[in-house]
Design a protein around this nucleic acid. Structure first.
Length: 578
DNA sequence: GCCGTTTTCGGCCCGACTGTTTTCAGTCG
């Protein structure tokens, strides 16, 4: 996408300009880059429709940067960027990925040792050449080697789904201490980001020593990075790090606000504070020397003239502007979810776990569950054919009538029958329309031949959406976190056709998928395409993936009205095509 | 280079930590 390309160039220009010690320009370019990254409309379209004035309406884009955008649109490059690249022919992004290296150090390393990338850097450090440079020393050299080691084994981010359950356990255990007055996760975990670098936990206590002693002796600790008077860092057996900070009780609110971030969100809050003649930091909101808010986040936001903002949307992508006008969306909550429609019973593999899934769903408090097994094209998953689907339908009817008896004849809980059919390369579905029409709903998804061109893949999915029997598209972009990128698709077109045909897009709650992502969700909401949050459970325990889907939906600003399995079952069934 | 219910010029977010330094620049979150 062209927005991302230009954003990347501006980001790089910001780093180069820092190396040139330019004043204020770097921040300007960085701001423009960030703004383009989160921009939903295509920048080329904006220019075509509204010209340079349209570009200048983008926050952080003024005359100068608008002209550079136009230059890129017309010639495919930006002269100023070329000039900087020539002056600093280095892989700046790569070098800065090493912890402790920023633009200035990268510049010095290039100018004095001709270091252009990590390979050069490692060689120089190993040869002991870095320690002799001005403003560098032995310690810095060792830190660089350490940083390279970490960089190499990375993909060092972890899935929220891998980490959050453990965080809940740690919090529950620390809560048992009577010295712990308040406790919360902070940082990207609290914002429910898809992936997490490290975990931040905050505690309010008057006896930090005791709390920290307990913290570093938690089960599963394999390394203690540091243990201070009010903070400590540990590495857990999953190879991820947890930082703890212990604060005086009174400071908990401002510290929680500060350490939750995001950085971009906090920067804007601090600017708002400055404008009001105040100062915001982790120690509180101040007017001069006087602390006017500190104990709770609500208090801080209120004194800044804002509604309290849910952590999931604290990304400075428009939430602050809405909070100023008290117009924040009412984000969907887990308790709004009335049922789960993407659950596999592995019926074709001879398992009969439908009633177990139903029991689990009843325990969760759902009003219905939808069984949607794979279909015949996916042999390896024991996909069902037409005949098996009809047999399964009969069994589900039987279980449903038994359930009704259990509830004294009342239909308090219902099992629906769907399927997760395959969208073939040509866009057709691997189950006959006649049988599809007999099911309560039909999910269709791409499970093969994922390396098509953008137009091929888009047309494939569009054709499936135009099938009147297809209600829902599962994991619409196909990405698997840390493993595989999304398919090449024209998501705008998918959205337009979804809107036109009334097709529902899935928010797949599996922590490895989380597909749609937050940006997709915001786009869908804006266009008015409805979504459904499904666990994609392959065993009954995985029905508990649902919260991750809800977090993702919240990160995409989705409300109850946008998500059909937050509606009463009757409305849901009325909405789908049949 | 951007931006404006204090400004079209003069501002531009905050604090801790680290390593290298005798007072601070660079990096990070």
């Amino acid at each position: 996408m062209i927005n991302q390309e230009i954003a990347r160039i501006f980001q790089e220009m910001a780093e180069f300009l820092l190396m040139e010690e330019a004043a204020f320009k770097p921040q300007a370019y960085e701001k423009a880059a960030l703004s383009l990254e989160t921009l939903r409309e295509n920048i080329g379209e904006i220019y075509k429709k509204e010209g340079i004035e349209g570009l200048k309406n983008i926050p952080g884009v003024g005359q100068g940067i608008a002209e550079k955008i136009i230059e890129y649109l017309k010639t495919g490059k930006i002269k100023e960027h070329q000039r900087l690249k020539k002056k600093f022919p280095i892989k700046i992004e790569e070098l800065m990925a090493v912890e402790g290296i920023g633009p200035k150090m990268a510049r010095d390393l290039y100018e004095q040792l001709k270091i252009k990338d990590i390979k050069d850097l490692e060689k120089a450090a190993q040869a002991g050449k870095i320690r002799g440079l001005p403003r560098f020393g032995l310690k810095t050299e060792q830190n660089i080697l350490q940083g390279i080691k970490f960089f190499k084994k990375s993909g060092s981010r972890f899935l929220l789904g891998e980490i959050l359950p453990r965080v809940y356990e740690i919090i529950a255990e620390l809560k048992n201490l009577k010295e712990v007055k308040q406790i919360s996760e902070a940082g990207s975990v609290r914002r429910r980001q898809e992936t997490i670098g490290d975990v931040d936990i905050l505690i309010a206590s008057s006896d930090p020593e005791k709390v920290i002693d307990h913290f570093v002796s938690l089960s599963g600790v394999i390394k203690i990075w540091n243990k201070g008077r009010t903070k400590a860092s540990i590495r857990l057996s999953g190879e991820y790090d947890v930082d703890l900070r212990v604060l005086p009780e009174k400071q908990f609110g401002s510290a929680l606000q500060y350490f939750t971030g995001s950085k971009e969100h906090n920067i804007v809050l601090r600017k708002i504070a400055v404008k009001k003649g105040l100062k915001l930091s982790e120690y509180g909101l101040f007017r001069g020397e006087k602390r006017i808010a500190v104990e709770s986040e609500e208090e801080i936001y209120e004194k800044l003239g804002l509604e309290w903002i849910s952590p999931e949307i604290r990304e400075n992508t428009g939430e602050i502007e809405l909070a100023l006008k008290t117009k924040l969306p009412e984000l969907i909550e887990l308790k709004d979810i009335k049922g789960d429609c993407h659950c596999h019973s592995h019926w074709g593999a001879g398992k009969r776990i439908i009633s177990e899934l139903a029991e689990t769903a009843i325990k969760i408090g759902y009003e219905y569950i939808g069984i949607s097994d794979h279909t015949k094209f996916l042999r390896i998953e024991h996909g069902l054919d037409e005949k098996q689907l009809i047999q399964q339908k009969k069994e589900i009817e039987k279980i449903n009538s038994r359930l009704r008896q259990g509830f004294g004849g009342q239909a308090k809980f219902k099992i629906l029958q769907g399927c997760e059919a395959n969208i073939m390369a040509d866009g057709s579905i691997d189950i006959s329309d006649k049988v599809l029409a007999k099911l309560d709903y039909v999910i269709a998804g791409v499970h093969s031949q994922m390396k098509m061109t953008e137009s091929e893949m888009t047309e494939r999915i569009v054709k499936a959406m135009r099938n009147p029997n297809v209600d829902i598209i599962s994991h619409p972009t196909g990405r698997i976190l840390k493993q595989r990128d999304e398919y090449k698709i024209d998501f705008d077109r998918i959205l337009r056709v979804a809107k036109e045909t009334g097709t529902i897009l899935e928010i797949n709650a599996n922590p490895y998928r989380l597909d749609l992502n937050d940006k997709n969700i915001r786009q869908a909401k804006k266009i008015g395409v409805k979504m459904i949050i499904n666990s994609d459970a392959h065993q009954k325990e995985q029905l508990n993936f649902m919260p991750y889907g809800v977090f993702q939906a919240r990160r995409g600003w989705a409300e109850k009205k946008d998500v059909i399995n937050a509606w009463p079952l009757k409305e849901f069934l009325n909405f789908i095509k049949r």
